[in-house]
Amino acid sequence: MRDAVELEGASVRYPDGRGIENLTARLEAGRTVALVGPSGAGKSTLLQLIAGSVAPDSGRVCTLGQPIAELTGTPYRVACDRVGLLAQADDLTPGLSVLHNVFAGRLGRWSAARALRNRFWPRADDRRDAASALASAELADRIDADPAELSGGERRRVALARLAFQAPALWLADEPTTGLDVRLRADMMDLLLRMVRDRNATAVVALHDLELLRCDFDEIWGLRSGELSFARGAETVSEDQLGVLFGSGR
């Protein structure tokens, strides 16, 4: 099977000394991976490298077969459309209804005319698709609500529905459960993984909450000080390895 993500000796160095050092890894298409490591280990940087928003200082990064960071113009935007991002913070647009926030997921594929039309008189088929994306995030009844009227958990699920509507081949999520209460985190993560599997997509999810490793990931990658300390099947990672990763020796 083709690789969705391919890193060969990729390095990024920031002035504060953080970054990624000589990282080599590959991820098969259709797999889900949890990225774990102490804070500052380089999880977000690795996600940015894969998304193409940061170019490697040395080495090579290929996402869905292309070095996104080197692309410009239309090829860049096409590549962006195939890579979906779920940010740590709540990034819905205030003042835009849930429906239109979900619509934003397909701006890469719509012509300007269609995008503008849908802002004011949504086409029936686009509205139906958005409604079904919202239904898969269990939010079918909030389609005309405003983000300000939703709870924190609901807002995160709108962001998920936006990704489902975008339907990218690769889902990148940076600590997507931050700020949610403990009970909701596992539900949200299960929902995310279910959506990815239903669409035969690939996912890389950075986690700070090790409890969430109980969710159904295929692989776990451990990062420490910008280096990959392990990358293996989820069922084969032991408590000891995680302990070493976090330096707690538990």
Partner: peptide
């Protein structure tokens, strides 16, 4: 604040309508 919308947007006008306009309304 508008990065998630602008990263995707195929047309810059659509990016302004979905990303920036609601913020300044």
């Amino acid at each position: 604040r508008v990065h998630p919308v602008e990263r995707l947007a195929g047309s810059p006008l659509a990016a302004v309508v979905y990303g920036r306009l609601p913020h300044i309304a």
